[in-house]
Simulated assay, not measured.
Amino acid sequence: MLIQNKRIAIVGGGMAGLTLARLLQMQNADVKVYERDVNRDVRVQGSTLDLHEGSGLEAMKRAGLIDEFYAHYRPIASKMRIVDKSLQIKFDEHNSGKAFSEHRPEIDRAPLRNILLNSLKPDTVVWDSHFVSMEKQNNGWHLHFKNGTSAYADLVIAADGAKSRVRPYLSTESPVYSGITLIEGNIYHAENNAAKLFEFTKGGKVMAFGNEQFIGYGTKGDGSIMFVASFKGPENSLEQSGIDFKNKEQVFAWFKVAYAGWSDEWHEFFTNDDVHFIPRPQYYFPLNQTWETQENLTMIGDAAHCMPPFAGEGANVAMQDAFELAECLTNNKFRDIKTAISHFEKQMIIRGAAATQETLENSEIMHSKTALEQMLIFFSH
């Protein structure tokens, strides 16, 4: 096996990094995951994930974790309501039997992460390891972390997300602004803090369209709500607005102006006592990106092909990256690691570009003047 007696460092303990670590350990590889979170109990944010056949679900099958997945997935989370800006229901899967997205079962990020973490050997994940830099050493890399520690690896895999600090060692290609910015909000104890909107989901998710803007939200198994409010705008519009996103009154004032014409019922997101906001301009890497393959470094997931969230492809493509890279490194079909990585990267770039293109097309539809009509036609068929 190409990676026999090789030390492998995966930088980033998200879905892609943990999936890859699991698959490599199943082949007895020597692998460590360096994660910047202080420990595994740090509050996990982010939306519920729907895993797809051939990518996310296939990764769980190959990892021998599909039964664990189905023990923790949330069938009701797939049920969707489409509404207008006045919260008037235009499409309701709660009244239509089988959900459109039921073939894409949904699971919260926290239990999925726990399933993957629990499948790894003890001490595989090195917590509180925020990557700072690395330099070449022998035929590998010497990695340095913010806490003052360091480590050597023969092979480094960047799985540290859209703002990857490892990616620049491989590619100088800059991300492209998509034209869409969103504000993410997380509300804890939502049944008390956003009671009406919490009840309105019936445990599923809601998508609202109007004025070339979008609001989407859903409940999670821990009783929280994550919502996004997205819109077309200049890249630095929120940064230049001077809004303090730790100040809910300032964010609420912005919303009432920016989303003028949307009903007051949406205000519940902004007026409760336990809401936290994050501004997120949405980026993607060029569809024709390329880089020179290295024998001791590659990347997967958002580090390789970040994209907006409007097609539900990001996590799925990332988990497919994990099982395809693991396959290339362990199937004994390639003469050396560089050849294996080269084969993986060529296929990965093609898949990432296709998923990004689909996402950008969805983004345009969902923020168009006829978004509501187009989405109703799509789901009705």
Rank of each mutant, 00 (worst) to 15 (best):
T293W: 04
R280D: 12
N139H: 14
G218T: 07
N272K: 07
F323N: 10
L116D: 01
E295W: 11
R81V: 00
G46I: 07
D244L: 08
D41K: 06
W262S: 05
E324R: 14
Q282N: 14
S150T: 13
G203D: 01
G204Q: 00
S363I: 08
R74E: 12
E212M: 07
Q294V: 09
G97D: 01
S164N: 05
N332W: 06
I10D: 07
K85A: 15
F285E: 15
P279E: 09
G46N: 04
A162F: 12
D302A: 06
M1I: 12
A258L: 09
V156M: 08
P111F: 07
F344S: 02
N118I: 11
Y188W: 12
F269S: 07
E235M: 03
K90Y: 11
Q347V: 13
R22Y: 13
E268I: 02
A151N: 10
A326F: 01
A190N: 02
Q4H: 14
D160L: 09
V31E: 01
R40G: 11
N362D: 10
Q250E: 15
L116P: 00
S119A: 15
P308R: 00
K98L: 14
L65I: 09
V132Q: 15
G56N: 04
S96M: 02
L49Q: 02
F145S: 11
I8H: 01
V166L: 04
H189T: 14
L117S: 06
F245I: 13
D321I: 03
D108K: 05
D321A: 02
A21N: 10
G179A: 11
G13P: 00
K146Y: 13
L57G: 05
I215S: 04
E313N: 14
D84T: 08
D50C: 03
H267E: 12
D128M: 08
D264I: 14
E135T: 15
T298S: 02
G242H: 06
C306T: 13
V166D: 09
G218C: 10
S86N: 15
E324W: 07
E313P: 03
T298V: 02
M366A: 13
P175M: 08
M307E: 01
L287T: 04
T339H: 08
S178C: 02
M348A: 09
S119Y: 04
M375E: 04
W262Q: 08
E265R: 15
S178G: 00
R22D: 15
G312I: 05
V257C: 09
K346W: 03
F69I: 06
H142L: 15
F131S: 04
F227P: 00
E53I: 14
V132S: 14
L87M: 12
S96D: 00
I89E: 03
Q213D: 03
L2G: 06
Q320C: 10
P175I: 11
I66K: 07
L329I: 04
L2I: 05
V132P: 14
V44W: 05
N147Q: 06
N138C: 13
G148S: 05
H94L: 00
T330H: 03
M348E: 06
N362G: 10
L23G: 07
I3L: 06
S47C: 09
A304P: 00
I278M: 10
W262K: 04
